[in-house]
Design a protein around this nucleic acid. Structure first.
Length: 472
RNA sequence: GGCGCCGUACCCAAGUGGUAAGGGAGAGGUCUGCAAAACCUUUAUGCACCGGUUCGAAUCCGGUCGGCGCCUCCA
């Protein structure tokens, strides 16, 4: 089996071949830090994390770059064209810089809690204005730009394959159907590389440039930063499926206009998380943050497990019932691992596996190689847990290895600690045994309730009463 | 209106022309005074519907119905 990805560029599965053998250069579109990430946003980062972990599991060395968009861009929230960062600034009374810092920290707090490995480089747009200006100059020198109304526009008519990724040539778009047409544009699909004429007042983030004091267009940052860290050509570019028609289409156009070469070989896009009402977004309500799930008693990894249960390219239906199901499954998995740890067997290393254990490892690997089929990969776990031919040590060895991709922190699970009752509690347990003999169920249950309030479960077995920690 | 995707059990969700993964929930059982926990068993002759191709279709083709997304900032 060879590693295969669904490449949005060709709309088909392709065998993955990196430009440089053994190394993968990978860029992922990061967050705009003007608000908290919602759990739909976070799906993208879990997907990218699984991608990165899979590549590393398969032996590649991965250079993973992610941008932080801390420059404000036009918002469509109310079709008022206001800058997102400025809007939050006005509403909160904080500076745009403070807001960017605050939400950047919040973002990484969330991804850490989801056990997402941090990118090799996280680069802030505001730290790379020089690179953006340099890139715009290259595009300008190659004749792909025009000035209008003080802004630098990309002339999409000059770029022959414009819209290839999005199959735009097949579409008849309703330009201006939902947003006012920019009168400066020669073609509605043209986009701004550099603004000097702000549509709104009091723009705080301004930089000097050959075209005047202003700020960059949205798309240029991803091209400039990815090329700075990964070179003019690299292997993989990821992002949400919504980016295909505009953002990624424009990134390709401006990057290839600058270099004259093919820019990215593999485009991987994740589908959306859906609520009952449709996709999750601020305007439609149902804005759930990771913290709000935690506040309702869920563990961040419950959400990660939930996401792993579906393929990244399918729309996934979120509901608390479904999240609850993921939590039950994950806790049950933890419980089974605690059972295995009781055996005292050490995890069997990959080199010492039985024939059967080896075949499971290959199945797991094959599932990931098939365009990151995490639902199948998860199913392998449940299958080996039920396979009586494997020793506890072999199962642990397999699970720990698989978890380097799944990221469920299975290695952190420790054997259940025996609860040590105090003298007083020992006396209560004795009393309960007597009460049960006397069929004094009221007193017996009272004592059981006492332990239950301490998060402990009394389990009556023929050998006597066992004290167990209650899960959840 | 144009473009793209999807429809598999009560729910979520895999599925590569050849016996329909997995999880959750439910039901039954072992155990128990009743519980809880654990374990075992069980749950689609069926894949939206109608045709077609094929020895064989959830899978390929055509049509119908239904859902979602994009065309606008978005993961």
């Amino acid at each position: 089996m060879a590693l295969q990805f669904y490449n949005s560029l060709s709309r088909s599965l392709e065998e993955f071949k990196p430009i440089q053998e053994g190394n993968v250069s990978f860029y992922a579109c990061g967050p705009t830090v003007y608000n908290y990430a919602h759990i739909g946003n976070l799906r993208a980062y879990v997907f990218e994390d699984v991608l990165r972990r899979t590549l590393e599991y398969l032996g590649y060395s991965v250079q993973h770059i992610m941008n932080i968009t801390d420059v404000g861009h036009l918002t469509g929230d109310n079709d008022d064209g206001e800058d997102k960062m400025l809007k939050t600034s006005r509403e909160s009374g904080k500076t745009v810089w403070d807001i960017a810092e605050y939400y950047t920290e919040a973002f990484f707090r969330d991804t850490d809690r989801l056990n997402i490995v941090r990118p090799s480089v996280s680069c802030a747009a505001t730290q790379h204005i020089d690179e953006m200006i340099a890139l715009i100059k290259r595009i300008e020198e190659n004749g792909y730009t025009y000035m209008a109304g003080g802004n630098v526009y990309f002339d999409t008519d000059k770029f022959k394959d414009y819209g290839k990724l999005a199959l735009l040539e097949r579409q008849e778009q309703k330009a201006g159907a939902r947003v006012d047409v920019d009168k400066n544009k020669r073609h509605p699909r043209d986009f701004v590389l550099w603004f000097t004429q702000s549509k709104f007042e009091n723009h705080i983030m301004l930089w000097d440039s050959p075209w005047g004091k202003g700020y960059p267009g949205w798309h240029i940052e991803c091209s400039a930063m990815s090329m700075k860290y990964l070179g003019d050509q690299f292997d993989i570019h990821c992002g949400g499926i919504d980016h295909i028609p505009v953002h990624h289409t424009n990134e390709i156009a401006q990057s290839e206009a600058a270099t004259g070469k093919k820019w990215v070989n593999y485009w991987l896009h994740n589908e959306f998380l859906l609520m009952d009402s449709g996709k999750m977004s601020k305007s439609k309500g149902g804005f759930l943050t990771l913290q709000s799930l935690i506040d309702q008693g869920y563990h961040p990894l419950d959400y990660r497990y939930f996401l792993l249960g579906a393929h990244y390219r399918t729309q996934l239906h979120f509901s608390f019932d479904n999240l609850k199901g993921a939590r039950s499954a994950r806790l049950s998995l933890e419980e089974k691992i605690r059972e295995l740890l009781k055996s005292g067997e050490a995890p069997v290393p990959a080199g010492n596996r039985s024939e059967k254990a080896r075949s499971y490892a290959e199945t797991f690997r094959g599932d990931l190689e098939a365009d990151l089929n995490t639902p199948r990969a998860l199913a392998v776990i449940w299958t080996i847990l039920k396979d009586g031919d494997l020793t506890p040590g072999e199962i642990l060895g397999l699970l720990y290895e698989f978890d380097s991709v799944l990221g469920l922190k299975l290695k952190d699970i420790e054997p259940a600690k025996e609860y040590q009752p105090s003298e007083e509690e020992k006396a209560m347990l004795e009393e309960r045994i007597q009460a049960r003999k006397d069929k004094n169920w009221g007193r017996a249950d009272e004592i059981r309730d006492y332990f239950q309030e301490k998060g402990l479960i009394l389990k009556d077995t023929p050998q006597g009463t066992v004290i167990l920690p209650a899960s959840v």
